[in-house]
C-alpha cells in the first residue's frame, strides 16, 4: 500500500450554498513535486488552507504524514512550511526581524537558520529596508525563506512564483527542484501557469470548479497527451479518399479544404507522403503534432483555457 504524505478523502468545502471544493481525493507521494493546476477560483487556495487547518472542511478528511490533521496539528504542522496567498509579514519590520519573530515562535534559537534561509532566496541578512518597502518579488522570496527556514519535510506553496521576474522564476524553480532532488523534500504547489507546472512538477492534479478532474504523473500525462499527424494538401477530400483506399485507415479528421489530422499513428509518415504525391496532390506540410499541456487542460476542463 502506497504511503502518501498528503491524502484527502472526499474533502469538501462549502461557503453557504456554493461548493468551493467538491469531494477532493488528492494523493501526494513523498519526495515528489505535485503541481495543483487550475484556473483562478478553481479551489486551489481553499484546498491548501484546508490542508493546513486554516479552514475547516465541510466534509471529508485530511491525512498528513499518515495521520488525520484534526487533533494532530501540533505534531503535523511544525513539519510543514507554507506560503498561502500573499506573503504575510509585518510591514514595519525588516525581513530579518520578521523571520526572527517566526523563528522564535517555532523555537529556532539559531540566527544561522535565518541567515541561511535568506541566503537561499538571495535576500540580504540584516538589511535596513522594512518589509513595506520590498518589491513584490522580494516579498515572495521572503515568504519562501520563511517556508523553508525550519527545514520542513513538506512544503505547501500557493502560487510561489507570483510577482517574480523571469530570472527570479527560474531561480526559484531550480531552488525548489533542488530541495526535492537533493534534500528529499516533498512539495505541493499550486499555479494557474501551465508552463511552470510542466517544468517543475512530477505529478499533476487538475482542479476545475472545485473538482479534481485528473491526477497523474506528468510523464503519464505526456504519454496520454493527444498525438496526431497533421497534413496540408491541395485537396483534402482527395487526400481522405487516398487514406481510405490506399492506406486503409479511417482514423482521420478533415479540418478544412486543405488540411487533415490523422489519428492513426501507426501509419509511417514517409508512406503517407508517397501516397499523397502518387495521387497527384501537392503536399505542403506533413508533421507529427503533440498536444501541449494547455491543449490537454482545455480538453479536460471542457474547452476552457487557463486564466
Amino acid at each position: 500500500m502506497t504511503t502518501y504524505l498528503i491524502e484527502t478523502k472526499d474533502l469538501t468545502k462549502q461557503y453557504g450554498d456554493q461548493t468551493s471544493v467538491n469531494r477532493l481525493n488528492l494523493h501526494l507521494r513523498p519526495g515528489r513535486i505535485y503541481g495543483l493546476l487550475g484556473r483562478n477560483g478553481a479551489g486551489k487556495t481553499t484546498t491548501m488552507k484546508m490542508l493546513l487547518g486554516l479552514t475547516r472542511p465541510t466534509a471529508g478528511e485530511v491525512l498528513l504524514f499518515g495521520m488525520p490533521l484534526r487533533g494532530n496539528e501540533r505534531k503535523i504542522l511544525p513539519r510543514i512550511g507554507s506560503l498561502i496567498e500573499s506573503p504575510g509579514f509585518y510591514p514595519n519590520l525588516t525581513g530579518t526581524e520578521n523571520l526572527r519573530i517566526f523563528a522564535r515562535l517555532r523555537g529556532i534559537p539559531s540566527a544561522d537558520a535565518i541567515r541561511e534561509a535568506l541566503a537561499l532566496v538571495g535576500l540580504p541578512y540584516r538589511d535596513k529596508k522594512v518589509f513595506s518597502q520590498y518589491s513584490l518579488g522580494m516579498k515572495q522570496r521572503l515568504a519562501i525563506a520563511l517556508a523553508v527556514m525550519h527545514d520542513p519535510e513538506l512544503l505547501i506553496l500557493d502560487e510561489p512564483i507570483n510577482g517574480l521576474d523571469p530570472i527570479g522564476i527560474a531561480e526559484i524553480r531550480s531552488f525548489l527542484r533542488k530541495l526535492c532532488d537533493e534534500k528529499g523534500k516533498t512539495i505541493l504547489l499550486s499555479s494557474h501557469i501551465l508552463s511552470e507546472i510542466s517544468l517543475l512538477a512530477d505529478d499533476v492534479g487538475i482542479l476545475h470548479q472545485g473538482v479534481l478532474l485528473e491526477e497523474e504523473s506528468l510523464a503519464e500525462l505526456e504519454a496520454r497527451n493527444g498525438r496526431s499527424i497533421h497534413l496540408s494538401v491541395s485537396d483534402s477530400a482527395q487526400a481522405a479518399r487516398l487514406l481510405e483506399t490506399e492506406l486503409h485507415t479511417t482514423a482521420f479528421r478533415v479540418e478544412d479544404d486543405h488540411s487533415l489530422r490523422i489519428l492513426d499513428l501507426g501509419l509511417p509518415i514517409p508512406a503517407i507522403a508517397r501516397t499523397m504525391l502518387a495521387g497527384g496532390l501537392d503536399l505542403q506540410d506533413l508533421h507529427l503534432c503533440e498536444d501541449t499541456l494547455e491543449d490537454y487542460f482545455k480538453r479536460v476542463t471542457g474547452g476552457e483555457g487557463i486564466a
Partner: peptide
C-alpha cells in the same frame, strides 16, 4: 487587527500557535 491586515495571522496559526 495588525495580524489580519498584514496576513501574518495564517502564518502564526500554522506554526502552530
Amino acid at each position: 487587527e495588525w495580524e489580519r491586515t498584514s496576513h501574518t495571522l495564517r502564518g502564526i496559526l500554522t506554526v502552530p500557535v
